[in-house]
Simulated assay, not measured.
Amino acid sequence: MSAPAQLATGVTQLTASRFALVSYLPTYAALLYLGALLAARAPGGGIEPSRALSRLHGLSGAALIGLALAALLLAVLLHPLQAPLVRLLEGYWPHPARAAARCGTTVQERARNRLARTAEAVTAHPADAERQRMLAAAWQLARSYPPPPVPLLPTALGNALRAGEATAGSAYGADAVVWWPRLYPLLGERLRAVVDDRRDQLDLACRLTVTAGATALLSVPLVLGGDGWWPASPAVLLLAARVAYRAALAAALGYGEALSAAFDLHRFDLLTALHLPLPADAGAERALNRRLTRYWAQGVPLTDLAYEHGHEPDPLAPPPVPPAAPAEDGPR
């Protein structure tokens, strides 16, 4: 492969990677917007886009590479903060924000109660339209809010993710949070691709939400005193953050469905990998899975647990010789 082809392949792989999608591209877009605003500021306080374009044309190739590397470095530094950013949007807020957390939890509780009342409004002979509305409310309630007594979080995103964690595997006695690190490596290739894709969608939408909101706040002092539509650009970014949050909520619902599918299809693969006998019925399965959950989560010892070791063939041993077929009796 020639050098240009190798370079093109490397660039394609980088831009298609999770790091580029979730971390680099949103960071680069935010820095590009803020840098353009800084370059467009005129001495009198106005904003002149032509001024930014002229400064961009005046940059050397080394300066452009340096800016790209600076954006890459910032994206690398921010990448470990992806999980805390998601938890922030879920509603895991620090102690000083407890008042806001209580208000958010109250709002979420009222929304859940409205859905619950709609789902339970069944008459003796409900009309088709009413039945469809009831079924839709019940379906949305199960996907968007965790079942009692699981506590609610102050955001819709947090409750949707908590509902997926509480629902996946619960019918089989498995705790999704505890089981997932052990179950994920055993997923099939196609299902793992679905899970990874939906997780990437969730992380990207969360990163866009935070990046757009932070960029809007940072751009406020840069657009003050500008003419035209420039002073309204922070509001546009806040609207984009709102849209990205709705996208994160939809991605969370899809991710919860993928978790449930993983437990439905591969929970027995984990028992086989642990060399445990497969349960004979649903009751035995729930009892075994609850014991495993308590062991992994709380360290409760597993006593009187029998293992089932399969006899795997030795790859270095010669293949077995099939028995000779019995001779057929000839005519007498």
Rank of each mutant, 00 (worst) to 15 (best):
D227C: 08
L238M: 11
A156I: 05
A30I: 14
G61K: 03
P326A: 13
H95D: 09
A325V: 08
A258K: 07
A297V: 00
P319E: 07
E120K: 03
R332T: 01
Q13T: 00
T303D: 02
Y92T: 09
E165C: 13
A168F: 00
E165Q: 13
L21Y: 10
R286P: 04
L38D: 12
A63I: 02
R131E: 09
N289F: 03
P323I: 03
G188D: 09
V107G: 08
R55Y: 04
L89V: 11
E90G: 15
T272C: 11
A193R: 15
D269C: 10
A156P: 09
P319H: 10
G283S: 15
A20F: 09
L135I: 00
L37F: 09
G226T: 01
L224S: 05
Q82Y: 00
A3H: 13
H79P: 03
A40E: 02
G173I: 12
S219H: 10
P315N: 09
T272D: 06
Y33D: 10
L202T: 06
T155I: 06
V107R: 14
Q298S: 13
S23V: 01
Q13M: 05
G158S: 05
T272L: 12
L73S: 10
L157Y: 01
G61V: 07
G330F: 05
R291H: 12
G91R: 01
V195E: 12
L21I: 04
A176T: 02
E312Y: 03
A261T: 14
R131C: 05
P149M: 07
L305I: 10
L56S: 08
A297S: 12
A40H: 01
H57M: 03
G225V: 04
L288F: 04
A174V: 01
G58I: 07
L38N: 05
H79G: 01
G35M: 00
G169F: 05
L183Q: 00
G169V: 02
F268L: 15
A240M: 11
R199K: 01
H95N: 02
G283W: 10
E109R: 14
L59R: 13
A262Q: 15
R294K: 05
A137C: 12
R98M: 08
V177Y: 10
D128Q: 14
A205R: 11
D329P: 13
T118N: 11
R290Q: 07
A214W: 06
G91S: 12
T293V: 08
D304V: 07
A138R: 14
R207A: 12
Q140S: 06
A119F: 01
G91Q: 04
P277H: 02
H95P: 08
L237K: 07
L115M: 11
D197T: 02
L218H: 02
L88S: 14
A156M: 06
L7D: 13
A71T: 03
S260E: 15
G158P: 03
R162Q: 14
L302P: 15
W296C: 11
A142I: 02
A244P: 03
L78I: 00
E308S: 11
R332I: 00
Y172K: 02
A20C: 11
R51D: 07
L259H: 13
S2M: 08
L316Q: 14
L276V: 03
E285F: 04
R290T: 06
F263E: 15
P4Y: 09
